[in-house]
Structures are given as C-alpha cells and as structure tokens.
C-alpha cells in the first residue's frame, strides 16, 4: 500500500518536473512552435519550417555579464525583451559587480559584457580578451548622505573636498567594497583626495550591490557614493539626499564589449556581436535616453554611441 502510494507520488513529481523543464526552458519563438505543430506533409509548411530554421541563430543563448546598476535600475528589463524579440536570441543576464563581470569575461564564461569601469576594462581590451569595445552611455555618480549632513559637504563643490570633509569628521561612510565599478570609482576619488586607503570604524564596506548598499547607508545615516540611476530608482525608500555632484571625476561611463571568440571557442560570437550592435543602434540609443524620464522626471542614462 505504502509502496504504491510512494511510487505514485514520486512518479507524479517526476512528470511535473519534466513538464517544468520544458516550461522553464527559454520561451521558444512563435515561429518554432508553428513549425512543429503543423503537419510536415504539407509542402509549403515544410518550406516555411526550413526558412524558420535558417533564420534561427545557431546558438540561441547569450550570457551577458553586467553590473548590478543596470539591473537594479530596471534598464535591462526594459531593453532586453526588445533585443530578444528583434533577433531571436535569449539573453541570460548575470548581474554582478563590474569586477566580477570582467573576471567572467576574462575567463570566457560570458559572451558579452556591459560594465562601467574604464580603468579596469582597459587591461582586458589591451590583452585582447575582449573585442568590439564600444561606448554606450553615461550618467554620473553622486555622493548621497543623511539630510542632516554631519560633515557639512553640501556647500563644497569638488567631490575631493567632500570626501576630505567626511574623512576629517569621521562621518560614517559605506563603501561597496566589492571591486565593482562604483567601488573602483570611489577608491580613485579617495586617492585624488589624498587619502590612499581610508580606514577606521567610520569607513565600512558592505560587500553588496548598489541597491543594498544604499539601504544600509540609509539605515545607518551614512554617506555613500552611488550611481544616479540606482539612487533615483530607489529614491522612494530613501531619506538620503544628493549632497555632492557635478565634478568631472564623477562621470560614470558604460561600455559594451564582446568576449574574444578566438581565445575562447565556446563563446557565442555571433550573439555577442548582435548584442553590441543592438546597444549602439540609434533606435536603442534613443530608448536609453527615454528610459526613466516618465517615472523620475529625468533620464537615468545618457546615450553616447552616436556622438
């Protein structure tokens, strides 16, 4: 009795699991479904099916390693469905810090990269690990902090002066501490401010993405460096205010690139090339410029590929 029931339950689970693996697979394009659902004896249908087969990319999946800011701001959810619809590729987005994204690229684990740390990207470009390196867009970093502004940075123009004031006051500062693009930028600003490696109880590393780091800074009434897009996307949950902006050091530049298929044969070169082409396409660039205007009253990213 027990055995029968157990077998019944196990087999139900198995069937469900099989059904799931089908359902879980990336949604096949409508064309494929049509081609398989009509009888193959029909000559026209067969022809149609063949055309469809030719139009389908050989390897459909593209692994895109990118930064948390493009995911947390909602930009990828906005752009990627359009790319998938246009090309038939399926993008698998791995949203990690820029440091890890570049590492995945350097090891050939990803096909395309979208990152925002030119100083960390340059070695990969020089070494030929990535190719087709293209400027996509920019926005800027901002220094956010509690409205009370204990280090009085609001009236300071240069970001280096603001950082110096924070360090002098030992006001709590939350660093990403994760080798992300934002972290790289933060360290370069500290360096420019003449503080090689800030330390002390006031300087804390979250080790997490931009969204989480903003939440932590908010709870601790601390300062942090954020990209504008993530900050604006989360502003409703935050009491933090923009206290310093506009210095030229705070420019946040995004590049897209493909991992060199000659070094790594498993890389989906055609797919990555299509993605790079999509990101710098005038139509996509216009979409990037419009993104967030409706919701936040200002664009989150400024397209650059056309200039």
């Amino acid at each position: 009795m027990k055995k029968k029931k157990l077998l019944w339950i196990l087999s139900t689970l198995l069937v469900l699991a099989l059904a799931a693996s089908c359902a879980a697979a990336p949604a096949p394009s409508a064309a494929t479904t049509v081609a398989t659902s009509v009888p193959a004896t029909d000559a026209t249908t067969t022809a149609a099916a063949e055309t469809t087969a030719l139009a389908q990319p050989a390897v459909k999946e593209i692994i895109l390693a990118t930064t948390t800011s493009t995911q947390d701001s909602g930009l990828l959810d906005y752009l990627i469905p359009k790319f998938e619809q246009q090309t038939g590729y399926v993008i698998k987005t791995i949203a990690v810090g820029t440091g890890q994204a570049l590492e995945l690229g350097a090891k050939g684990e990803a096909d395309a990269l979208l990152t925002h740390a030119p100083s960390s990207e340059k070695p990969l470009v020089d070494a030929g690990q990535v190719v087709n390196y293209q400027l996509v867009m920019h926005n800027d970093f901002i220094v956010v902090g509690p409205p009370a502004d204990p280090a009085k940075i609001m009236d300071l123009t240069a970001v280096t002066d603001a950082f110096k004031a924070i360090a002098a006051q030992e006001a709590t500062f939350i660093s990403r501490g994760d080798k992300s693009g934002t972290h790289t930028k933060e360290l370069s600003v500290w360096k420019a401010a003449g503080l090689e490696s800030p330390s002390g109880t006031w300087y804390q590393e979250s080790g997490q993405g931009m969204g989480s780091t903003l939440t932590i800074a908010n709870e601790k009434e601390a300062y942090t460096l954020s990209d504008r897009a993530t900050y604006l996307a989360q502003k409703t949950n935050l009491e933090l205010e923009i206290l310093n902006q506009g210095s030229k050091e705070l420019l946040n530049i995004y590049h897209v690139m493909q991992v060199n298929p000659e070094t790594y044969p498993m890389v989906n070169a055609a797919g990555a090339e299509a993605f790079v082409a999509f990101m710098i396409d005038p139509a996509t660039q216009a979409l990037i410029g419009e993104f967030g205007v409706e919701e936040f009253g200002e664009p989150l990213f400024f397209p650059d590929a056309l200039n």
Partner: peptide
C-alpha cells in the same frame, strides 16, 4: 543559476534581488 529572469529565477534569489532593488 545566475537568477536569470524567467529561466533560473527562484523564490529565494528573486527575494534577494528585490531587496537589493529596494522593492520591499
């Protein structure tokens, strides 16, 4: 899994991501 939307996103990874997005 990589928390890929519509493919490998499970309840725990989705929760973690929504927290980091601030969508409490």
């Amino acid at each position: 899994g990589g928390n890929i939307k519509g493919y490998t996103r499970v309840l725990t990874t989705a929760t973690s991501m929504e927290v980091s997005k601030g969508n409490f």
